[in-house]
Amino acid sequence: MSKKNKPPRPEPETLALPLGGVDSHAHLDLEDFDADREAVLARARACGVARVGNVFLGPAAYLKNRHYFDAHPEIFFLLGIHPGNADQCTPETLSAMRRAFESDPRLKAVGEIGLDYYWEDHPHALQEETFRAQLALARELGLPPVVHCRDKTDSQAAFDDCLRMLEAEGAAGRKLLWHCFGGDAAQASALLERGWHLSIPGPVSYARNESLRQAVAAIPLERLLIETDCPYLSAEPWRGKRNHPALVGFTAACVAEVKGLTPARVWTATGANARAFFNLEES
């Protein structure tokens, strides 16, 4: 079938999901949404997304962009220094983060923080130092960390180092969310054994990600969240297009197929899990 004769992609409204889903990880303050942020938020709610976690990549982004969501109490916040920006972690930056968390009840977690070995130009030692400092801040504030862990293809060095550091910092048995989980069943088991939650992104729907689908099949529903990580990582059938919270329903549908459940069941369960994890009030 030629491209011009392909059927149109189904819209997220066709999933007919009830209001109650949660996109646990989004970057709606990025310039990708400057032209239509309000429309994106309205569409998310129309598609059943009750809450969205917006992730601010550092205190400067938080201070600059928080106002985008003044009229949207359904948006809760995460704040952290991404491992790719580890060189920006200074005592002054950490102090600014602490002040933000202490003054803003909409900030619910320290993240995304962790290790990223995909690119060569981010020294691992500096990433570890930044990760450790923010884990200490999360403990001080009594808030959960949301972990970013990315490896090179066919490697799990970052995963192993993350586990080593988290064990050393006493994170096992404490509330923690593994953002954008893309590993296999063995990695999922290692995280579950430590009492943590896993957030599943759109790539679970990609044809070549059978190992991730096998992992999802084995993860108890009560430990799962779903996310867009928008504007990145759109699920099928919107792969390659800008991601946005309304599309998280397709991730729920894929997880449901893998687990032999209805999309509505996965939608409401992962929404409830997110509300409990982030200590969110109903909205």
Rank of each mutant, 00 (worst) to 15 (best):
A133K: 14
L135A: 06
N65L: 07
A157S: 15
T90D: 00
I113C: 11
D70V: 09
A109S: 09
V49R: 01
F159N: 10
A50Q: 14
A109C: 12
K152H: 11
D154A: 13
A50V: 04
L63T: 14
D161Q: 10
S155I: 07
L126C: 02
R139N: 01
L63N: 12
L57R: 05
A138S: 02
L141H: 00
A125V: 10
L137K: 05
L135D: 01
A71L: 06
H67Q: 14
C47M: 09
R66P: 04
N54R: 09
P145R: 03
D121T: 09
S95D: 15
A96H: 06
N85A: 15
F56N: 06
H82T: 11
A50M: 14
L126M: 05
V110W: 00
E74T: 10
A46T: 11
R66W: 09
A158E: 09
P83K: 01
T90C: 04
Y118K: 05
I75E: 00
H124F: 08
R106M: 04
A100F: 05
Q127M: 05
E140P: 02
G53P: 06
H148G: 05
R66G: 00
I81Y: 07
Q156F: 12
A46M: 09
Q134Y: 04
P145K: 03
P83D: 01
L79N: 01
G53F: 01
A71D: 15
Q127N: 03
A125P: 04
A44Q: 06
K64A: 15
L57I: 12
A60V: 15
K152W: 04
L94Y: 08
I75W: 01
C89N: 12
V110N: 00
T153A: 12
L143K: 10
Q134F: 08
P123W: 03
G114S: 10
T130D: 00
E129T: 13
L79Y: 00
F76E: 06
G114R: 03
G114F: 09
C47G: 07
F76Q: 07
V52Y: 00
H82G: 03
E92R: 11
G84I: 01
F159T: 15
A50G: 11
Y68S: 11
D154P: 05
R99K: 14
E128T: 12
R132V: 13
I75S: 01
D104S: 04
E102M: 10
V146N: 06
A100R: 04
